[in-house]
Each structure stands twice: as C-alpha cells, then as structure tokens.
Amino acid sequence: MKGALAVYQKELRLYFRSPIAYFVMAIFLVGTGYFFTYSIFLTGNARMTETFQNMAILLLLVLPVVSMRLFTSEYNGRTMELLATLPLRPWQIVLGKFAGAVTILLLMTAGTLIDVVPLYLFGNPEGMTILSGYIGFILLGMTCLAIGQLFSALTQNQIVAALITVAVLLAFWFIANAQRFQTSYAWRNVLGYLSFSRHFEEFVQGLVRTESVIFYLVVCAIVLVLNTSYLRWQR
C-alpha cells in the first residue's frame, strides 16, 4: 500500500503543478453554476435533479481531460521506465494514479456544494435525494476516470486518449437509445443494463439501489484490472 500512496502523492503534486487541474475545475464549476441557475429559475423548484443531469454530461466531457495525462505523460516524459523498474507492483501504480484522479473529482464535486446553499436558504429541498444524487455522481465520475485511465495507458498521445475516452463514455451514456432498434428482449435488457445514464437516473431520483452501486463499482474494478494487466503485459 505504501507504494500506491507514494504514487498517489506524486500524482496530486503533478496535478496541481500543471494548469490542467485548475482549468478543468474552473470550467466544471462555471458550467455547473450556469446549469444550476438556469434550472432553478426555469423550474422554480428547490431541487438538484436537472442540475445533476447536466452535471453528468459535463462530467463525461471534462473528466477525460483529467485522466488523459495519467499514463501518456509517463510515456512522453520517459518516466514509465522509472515507474516500471521501481519496486512497485502494477496494481500499486494503477491504484495510486486512480486515487489521484478521484481526488480531483472529489474536489470538483465539493465545489458544487456551494449550489446547495441557496436551496436551503430559500427553499426546503429533499436532503436525501441530493445526497443520493451526489453518490451517483461520484460513482459515475470514478467509472469515467477508470475508463479514461485505461485509454491513457493504451496510447502515447494525450489528445487521442481524451477523444477515445469521450467517445466511449458517450457511447455508454446513450447506449440505452439503441434499445428501440432491438426486437430481442434479452438484448434490450442488456443494453438498458449497460447504460450509464439509466443507473445514474436512479440516483438522481433519490434511489440508491445496490444493483446500481455494484454496477459502477464492478465496471470500475474490471477496467482497473484490465489496466493492471496491460502494464504487466507491457513488460
């Protein structure tokens, strides 16, 4: 675990020594603030439902920028040779980097809490629904980061890594739309189950179902294991 912690600390330092983390957070918070203000004035309801839905789309576009450098920068800076020859196991490298990126996600999420303040000041929102939305948001974000991290390991180019990640994330977000082209009941079920948006929708509505929590965690775990296996295979 010590090795993973060392990688984690290094990743955080690197994030905050480059402008990327600040830009991403700024864009995300400005975007979220805009969606929040817009939804509140449009609906007149003290709730976060619409804001969460827009935040999720924004997340799919912004998180690949956070994850794109995780491995590509190691390849381009020729530091992968150091990481691979230090007494670090591949899972420690993968976990340390993932934890670093998740910390950025948590900071971004914490920044949006400011939107909740006026809800409580001027209305009477449902606290548990908002909490459930945030849980879904973080789980979705973690899954996006894991996928982004895998593509960052698979290519040497940051832009390519980000673009592929965005494409894959959007595909999983809209995959449920393909249901209407399927006549097979089983396939319709599979497509619905794989949809990131379907599971997220439940959290937004205040429903924390074990099935959805496990879905995101399992996807996360599978992708991180693939990432670890790829590092091992590289040797």
Partner: peptide, 11 residues
C-alpha cells in the same frame, strides 16, 4: 539510471 533520466519536470 536509464539513458534519458526519468524526471518529472514540474516537480
């Protein structure tokens, strides 16, 4: 020590 010193420039 590899041929190109593996350094993180921003650290």
């Amino acid at each position: 020590l590899p041929e190109h010193p593996p350094l993180y420039d921003t650290l």
